[in-house]
Design a protein around this nucleic acid. Structure first.
Length: 280
DNA sequence: CAAGCGTGGCG
DNA sequence: TCGCCAAGCTT
């Protein structure tokens, strides 16, 4: 849940999650739609399907017990080197490094290597963890440092507990790499609203790959030409600006999908929920 | 290695 | 208001 998502955002969802899925086997037994619904609004929905797959894999391949070997943890879908390193060090006391956004920034500033590649940063992280002697504490400390006094927007070198051994103390600004901003692409989507009092609203399930993968939505058609009139709702993603054009239709829907009397039990993307709030 | 993948918070 | 970024991973 915490991958690329702030603790503040995750916390309430995390608590609700463990009420609904208290054990690995309970998560494994749930349907994909139940899991996606529990994840609704968190974004990066592939993570929800990955954690579901992981639960099922643990159930079948590891007798329902979370694996303790680093290589086995890495095999779980959605768990990469950094997350595996966090789990292995925090849960099992292993000497494994974490390299999240915070740790990367702290390492770059500490060693004054703003242009360091991921490969080089992993090397630095592994070296430090080996010398620390206390992997779990070290990892937590690095992450915490990056989240507080050595944060991205504001660094407080004067109050940093380790400023005396930091190569770039008091000159953080100079070592911030200039990020090349990635282009935001405009997409124009027609959203077909089949709504009737008798049958409710027509929803289709989006393909697993791509934007809002696996979630439910009214049928969406990509437009090559942008309508010059009619209602429009804009939804911003990281690298995409979605222009959503709601289209009320009285005809019968074609293709795969289902009528639902209420969207309550279905996981819908936030952009679609906002659009529906606006037009209904 | 770079692109693709959501959403909310914050300066 | 707007752009950046957050407990990254997969392809």
């Amino acid at each position: 849940m915490l991958q690329q998502t702030q603790v503040k955002t995750v916390l309430p969802r995390y608590l609700a999650w463990f009420t609904q899925f208290p054990t690995i086997s309970s998560l494994a037994a749930a349907s994909v739609d139940e899991v996606l619904k529990a994840w609704e609004g968190l974004g990066y929905y592939r993570r929800a399907r990955f954690i579901h797959q992981s639960a099922r894999m643990i159930d079948s391949d590891y007798l329902g017990k979370f694996p303790h070997r680093f290589d086995d943890i890495m095999k779980l879908p959605g768990i990469g080197r950094s997350t595996a390193g966090a789990i292995a060090s925090f849960c099992f006391g292993m000497q494994t490094a974490v390299l999240d956004g915070n740790v990367k920034r702290v390492l770059k500033r500490w060693h004054a290597t703003a242009e360091a590649s991921d490969k080089e940063l992993w090397l630095l992280a592994e070296q430090a963890i080996a010398e620390s002697g206390t992997p779990a504490i070290w990892n937590q400390a690095m992450m915490e440092l990056g989240a507080t006094v050595c944060s991205a927007r504001s660094s407080d070198c004067a109050s940093c507990p380790v400023n005396e051994c930091c190569d770039c103390a008091f000159q953080v600004e100079a070592t911030n790499a200039v990020r090349k901003s990635t282009a935001v692409l405009d997409l124009h989507w027609r959203v077909d609203l089949f709504i009737c009092s008798q049958r409710g609203i027509w929803l289709t399930q989006r393909p697993d790959t791509g934007i809002w993968g696996g979630l439910w939505s009214p049928p969406i058609t990509e437009l090559t030409e942008t309508p010059d009139k009619g209602p429009l709702h804009i939804h911003q993603l990281t690298h995409r600006r979605l222009h959503l054009y709601p289209q009320h239709l009285d005809s019968d829907p074609v293709g795969c999908g289902r009528w639902v009397s209420s969207i309550e039990g279905f996981a819908l993307p936030t952009g679609i929920l906002r659009l529906l709030e606006k037009v209904t």
